[in-house]
Design a protein around this nucleic acid. Sequence first.
DNA 1: CGCCGAGTTTGCATCGTTGCATGCAACGAT
DNA 2: ATCGTTGCATGCAACGATGCAAACTCGGCG
Lengths: 339, 339
Amino acid sequence: MPVTLRDVARHAGVSVRTVSNVANDFPHVAPGTRARVQRSIDQLGYRINPAARGLRTGRTGVLGLMVPKLSQPYFAELADETVQAAADAGLALMVEQTEGRREAERSWLRPGGMARMWDGAIVSPLGITGSDLAERLGCPVVLLGEHAADLRAPWVGGDNVAAAVAAVEHLIALGHSEIAAIGAQRGAGGETGRERTKGFRLAMSDAGLPVRKGRVVEPVSFDAAGGAAAVRTLLASRRPPTALMCFNDELAYGALAALAQAHISVPDEVSVIGWDDLRGNEFTVPALTSVRVPKAVVAREAVRLLLSLLGQPSGTEPAPVRIVIDHHITERASTGPAA
Amino acid sequence: MPVTLRDVARHAGVSVRTVSNVANDFPHVAPGTRARVQRSIDQLGYRINPAARGLRTGRTGVLGLMVPKLSQPYFAELADETVQAAADAGLALMVEQTEGRREAERSWLRPGGMARMWDGAIVSPLGITGSDLAERLGCPVVLLGEHAADLRAPWVGGDNVAAAVAAVEHLIALGHSEIAAIGAQRGAGGETGRERTKGFRLAMSDAGLPVRKGRVVEPVSFDAAGGAAAVRTLLASRRPPTALMCFNDELAYGALAALAQAHISVPDEVSVIGWDDLRGNEFTVPALTSVRVPKAVVAREAVRLLLSLLGQPSGTEPAPVRIVIDHHITERASTGPAA
DNA sequence: CGCCGAGTTTGCATCGTTGCATGCAACGAT
DNA sequence: ATCGTTGCATGCAACGATGCAAACTCGGCG
């Protein structure tokens, strides 16, 4: 029932190959012929059959995006931007959720997994290791900033250390000296947390400020619940901090909730800064100051980098390009002068 | 370079067709043969080539999900559940964003659009009309609850009127009588808002309560900004309400923010109820009571319904099945007894 | 002992497209 | 007039899988 090249060819009185040339905008087609064939294409409503083209060319026209979980706002916003960036490049995007399971990340990327359906994959890894990536992969892969700092592979992201320094400097400039960091993470997958912690300590020591015991908190979970719990612990300590630097906005949301519950005013008594600059930050109470690494730019660069990898012959070890995206602090109402 | 059926056949000493039979779990393969072939498959790492299969069978193994925007938490959570539901059915999922543009919804579904790449589509429509759906589509379509009430097509969603009634009854049971509704919408795409408004008015009149002028607010936008603006308007009115029913949680987020800014305590002075039961509701300040239509169930039923449509011969007018998912009220801290 | 049929296995054609190599016409240069 | 050369257009053969129908195997039965 669907219209094929053959149908169009018959209709336009040319060969199948010529129709293909027109449909693909190949050069070396006479203007007159092109117009006539194009007319037939439009008239019959012909569209390229992606399966057949894919079979012939080995390309699918589809990119994969692997994120831990779409319902986390950060990844939802990232997916939003990536879908758009892919569409701008004329590619479709399939989204997979790994839930942070290393095995899922690994198996999907292997030649037998989903990667088979993709020309390339953009991966926001949590559990995957360098050796997993050294295995033969089903398609070229670009890693995104989260937890991928030490993997030798093409990579796009922000500079965690420098951005953490900027965040702390923002708080110090407001007069804070008793600052806590929420979001450190031991063990595998904790690279991001470690880098941000490093930046935190660096900025503190550069300012000549001590980092008191217990001021670097590893939350029980990296969501609002974890942030809230961390704040309750900090409030119970001998000398509670006057400023909190949360390693992601969801932690900060939980922090705000716990502070509100404890009737502690933000930012009058405690300042809070988050990280990711989520859309919702504008409407937390109070609106949340946050570290911003523009997701649209990350997505666009990731697609661009991936497309450039596609040009290279497969099997070639891809150069471990690292594209660093500028960060800055989006100031809102949750940070203010120290009391 | 990739392993094909032919490679496996040679390796196992059987015909290509038999390998295909094993790979697809067809009956009528002798157990011994099956085991031997399976061993070869595993050993060589053979995987079905989806493009080739797709070309032959006409199926792609991919479902499409069309939502207005992934960065809206509601659609992100819905996409999360839908990806999972599709995976459970052995299908991949491609996500497209329509930004609510009718033309995008329409063109992607037409035979020439993305639908070409999909076995079926799950669509959360905003602008699409009944006549658009009556056109020849590129694949079977299941509509989701939002704004699709009056379209003749297979549909999965909650009962907006009944759920709105339940929400209002919850507020009335707490002693509220001065209740406002935020989220009405005139014009195309406003069906959801109209139904929820209908439920609101119905519950009020059933309780013998008047709906005062200006108490049904059409927000400037359906996000937190719109909710905040609506609340500011309501607060400026002669007799401000003591309870707010917001037609989605993002509106409610904005409402909470505006109330906090006005130093009005929730729920002591004003109660707020939202709709969608977003993950983040647990950590708003205070935690947001919300109408819940379980997204996991919606997604699962939508995939199930879509798969059942795939069985029917194309061209057949699909029966306009409507699957209604139960709602209930998730009570949290933002609703309380009237002052 | 040969035939039957259920249970297995196979060969062939084909899905719609593009890579490749070649055909063909027209034109300018020799 | 002839020979490249360039620019268009074409035919054929794949890509890797599955639908179809035929063929084979073998135990059981007339």
